[in-house]
Design a protein around this nucleic acid. Structure first.
Lengths: 341, 341
DNA sequence: TTGAAAGCGCTAACAG
DNA sequence: CTGTTAGCGCTTTCAA
């Protein structure tokens, strides 16, 4: 197999110095070279099938046209669309992403970031942010271009791209109230994540806005975004005799658990209890009943995060900006007017 | 921010030549150096927080401790487990993967592979293989270490890791026959993919094995692994008055379409028609009825593919070997004895 | 506008 | 066992 041509090959074939060939081939520096020469170099490069060696370039420039993407777990259906959004935008400008799964293990996170830095990644996108996340804060404070996606930090100027949870909850609650519901419970997600606390906060706000009683018994804190946690919460609610006609689940998995618990007690959805989820995961439209849920534009979240990061790379001194993407209520069959008044 | 220490820093701090430091730090060559010296070098490296620069190493060695992984689309729930299986195994030996989504576009595939080679990836894993796939065949013939996962080529010695479709279909068919079904239709997937043809072939074999009539009318070729294709196929079957009591769908998406078509015609599953899927995608246990399906161990497929590739990298001359992983039937509620005899 | 020269950080002959 | 030397392929001063 013939050795791949190098810049030197192109240069000698075109009768110029390698430095000139480099300048001619690099769009950034092409203007420094005689137009005619540049064209010749390009022709030779094409005919030889020359492809620059990104490794050599990285070594010299300490840049790599790549970024690191840190996610909890690729098999969680939330993340693939985010990843694709990021990759599609990056790909458009010749960048690539290294994807790391941390399984929410801080040790893996730090190790991964260390190894990414050795690879000279130019920036980092985290989908793993907890409300208090010293590691990320340090990194960002240390000047590493960093963007958060899907989740954000509690107080910080690290730019983030997230869904407008407050708006989403408000829509969901209005929907339930419009249907006639007055006794609504919330299955809140982990309170160390921005999504968990923001949705809970918005739930309380909505109760107030609609003049509904803010009864502590109508709130369940779930320690994980998991079906079992949702089922457990609803079972306890039922056992405690809490009255409710609707459930706002912190996410779709919790809503799924809710379905399970309801079914186990012989309660029908939406006949006895309406349920609203969050995320619009794949296939929740295939449940029975199809789940009414607040859709988060995950692909767009990723795309926007990539844009933000690229912008930071180009203009590091521009002030950080976070973006909130609008959510939409997907109205399916798991919500209906309450049976009892 | 202090410059990261280089090998030279470590060497001078330890009072040795950089080459010695290199040998001491690299496990492969550590035995070439005095034990005492090596220890000192390691200590200095630790205290300085030295991390080798993989880019410089790659440039020198033309190896990169990374491989390329070419998949159709990360948002298809089939692939994330495969990816994780691969990454987990590779990670264990210090390797990483570049993930590329092709969206089944051959042009993107060739472009991606080209760019991966520029990055000196040491091998390639394809999850995009079609039965006839000249590009992959050329690559493998050209000496690029290549492994296929999930799908394989028609005739070729390119090693692959796939599920045992024949065995899976046999199990599913036996299950249906044991329930009493005699009129079984197959929704076959795309016939340019090994999965599509292998399952169809196994279906025919099973008909023969069980002494069932091989009626052409009981077969529908679907042009895509998509819900709409499955729905269309079943609707046509019904319109044509074909008699059947069970459907073996080529995959879960096709089975989903089958559910839709059945529901639209007011037929119940499994009361009127039993349905078996393929893959055991996430959440098919939440459908109503929960889908009986043939489970493919996607994570293990990925892990095995990574092992195979690593082995090829270590011993390129060993003869290529393909592996077939056993499938299991997940018996849920979409199958039952036929109503009519 | 182009060439010369140096060097990014590392490893691999080769000598000693 | 260790040091010397050279160079992977590219970019970037600096000088002409």
């Amino acid at each position: 197999m013939a050795r791949r041509p190098t810049l030197k090959d192109v240069a000698s074939e075109a009768g110029v110095h390698p430095a000139t060939a480099s300048r001619a081939l690099n769009p950034e520096t092409r203007h420094l070279v005689n137009d005619e020469t540049a064209q010749r170099v390009h022709q030779v490069a094409d005919s030889l099938g020359y492809q620059p060696n990104p490794i050599a370039r990285s070594l010299k420039t300490a840049r790599s046209a790549s970024i690191g993407l840190i996610i909890p777990d690729l098999t969680n259906p939330l993340f693939p669309p985010i990843v694709r959004g990021i990759e599609d935008v990056l790909g458009g400008v010749g960048y690539n992403a290294w994807i790391i799964n941390t399984d929410n293990d801080p040790a893996r996170e730090t190790a991964a970031v260390e190894s990414l830095r050795n690879r000279s990644v130019e920036g980092l996108v985290f989908a793993t942010a907890r409300l208090h996340h010293p590691f990320i804060e340090q990194l960002a404070a240390g000047g590493t271009p960093t963007v958060l996606v899907n989740r954000r930090l509690a107080v910080s100027d690290v730019p983030s791209v997230t869904g407008d949870d407050a708006g989403g909850v408000a829509m969901a609650m209005r929907h339930l109230v419009d249907l006639g519901h007055r006794q609504i419970v919330h299955l809140a997600g982990p309170q160390d994540l921005s999504t968990g606390v923001n949705r809970l906060r918005a739930f309380r706000q909505a109760l107030e806005d609609h003049g509904l009683e803010n009864s502590p018994s109508r709130l369940k804190l779930c320690s994980a975004w998991a079906e079992t946690a949702g089922a457990k919460a609803v079972t306890e609610l039922l056992d405690d005799g809490v009255e409710f006609t609707a459930v706002l689940a912190g996410n779709d998995l919790l809503a799924l658990g809710c379905y399970d618990a309801l079914a186990e007690r012989g309660l029908s959805c939406p006949g006895d209890v309406s349920v609203v989820g969050f995320n619009d995961m794949p296939f929740v439209d295939k449940l029975s009943p199809p789940l009414t849920t607040v859709r988060i534009p995950h692909y767009e979240l990723g795309a926007e995060a990539a844009h933000l990061l690229l912008e930071r790379l180009r203009a590091p001194d521009r002030t950080a900006r976070s973006v909130l993407l609008p959510l939409t209520l997907v109205n399916r069959q798991s919500t209906a007017p309450p049976r009892r008044l």
